[in-house]
Design a protein around this nucleic acid. Sequence first.
DNA 1: GCGACCGTTCTAGTATGCACAAAACGGTCT
DNA 2: AGACCGTTTTGTGCATACTAGAACGGTCGC
Lengths: 215, 215
Amino acid sequence: MSRAQDLRQTIEDEIVEGRLALGSRLDEVQLAARFGVSRTPIREALLQLAVSGLVETKPRRGTIVSAPEPHHLIAMFETMAEIEAACGRLAARRLMPEDRAALEAALDACAAASDDCETYYAENYVFHGAIYRASHNRFLADQALSLHRRLAPYRRLQLRVRQRLPQSLAEHRGIVEAIMAGDDATAAERLRGHILVQGDRFADLVAGLRPQDAA
Amino acid sequence: MSRAQDLRQTIEDEIVEGRLALGSRLDEVQLAARFGVSRTPIREALLQLAVSGLVETKPRRGTIVSAPEPHHLIAMFETMAEIEAACGRLAARRLMPEDRAALEAALDACAAASDDCETYYAENYVFHGAIYRASHNRFLADQALSLHRRLAPYRRLQLRVRQRLPQSLAEHRGIVEAIMAGDDATAAERLRGHILVQGDRFADLVAGLRPQDAA
DNA sequence: GCGACCGTTCTAGTATGCACAAAACGGTCT
DNA sequence: AGACCGTTTTGTGCATACTAGAACGGTCGC
């Protein structure tokens, strides 16, 4: 792969995994020195991240890691809820035996990891990925995965919210149940609720941390 | 605005408006000469278009205007249907007086243009934009607009399908009716159908043109 | 002493040049 | 005559150099 693509992936991972703080400045020469390349591939990597929304570039003023306003984040979670609902709807209609197996395995893995937040977080990712794939719509699944990744830094925050983990697991069970039964409307509704709750919880969190920004 | 951004917009418009044929090669030096700039801003423009999916870049082999496989296009139309449904759902719940006025105006404009395909096409764009905005979710609306633009070259093909235009107008009326009534489920369902029909019609068209590709 | 204006500096944006990789062409060998 | 290999050609990918615009600090004026 070209160096620019490589760098894009690396920087993207650092942002998604929270190693690069939200709002922090991404200096081109600094990054170039750090990775031992010239500014050109760095610029190309940042440009791509800017299009996908992970960083923001202001003309003549450099680029920073995106730190969206709370209301914008709420909008993103709401969109995620709708996209996941769509995936669930299609999955319920098109479920194949291998999808069924993948969903069951992912659900079991979530249950097994229900005592450890970090592990659960990873298995949760697998679980939702399985639903996306079960939609049998590659484009939709890609959109869902991309948005999922983009919201990852914020999802991470909610892990600590009390009692969220067992509730999440129960919701997962309900979702799988509906998909397995071929009940597309219920599957969509449950997935929508599952994600929206996260958005709401996140809103609470933000409101608690920075009351002045919560409006 | 910087030249790269300018060029991105210009090239994007040419693709969306069908002035650049699908699959045609985008040579960097050629474009640079044509626009009187160096290769650098051209490269940056193409890179951004590649991220948004309008062009495809293969390593060391240059970039071409994306010409997705039919099954991929079907997937894109299906995703568009789900996203529009989501917009309609939220619009039905959150309709403000100004949204109501915008929808009515756009519907009237569509009706007035029902004898001319090109005009109807333009007004149709306005109509759907009004629905996106009425969702009061900026992020979702942006996603919808972006996908709408990306599908524009293919939508154009369907204009000629017989009887599509009056049927489309009737569907628009039904959609507005549901949104105005605050009936979110019906609004979503009607919008989904409205777009899916276009996808199906498109599939028919493709099948008719290139039977060997329709599988 | 405080504020505005100008110069410096630093960084993004663009141009140009170079190197490498892949494809096309021609030559040679079978 | 056809296939295979080497060479050339073409164009991407990266590096480096240059330009222009904005932030910052100093100085001058009030």
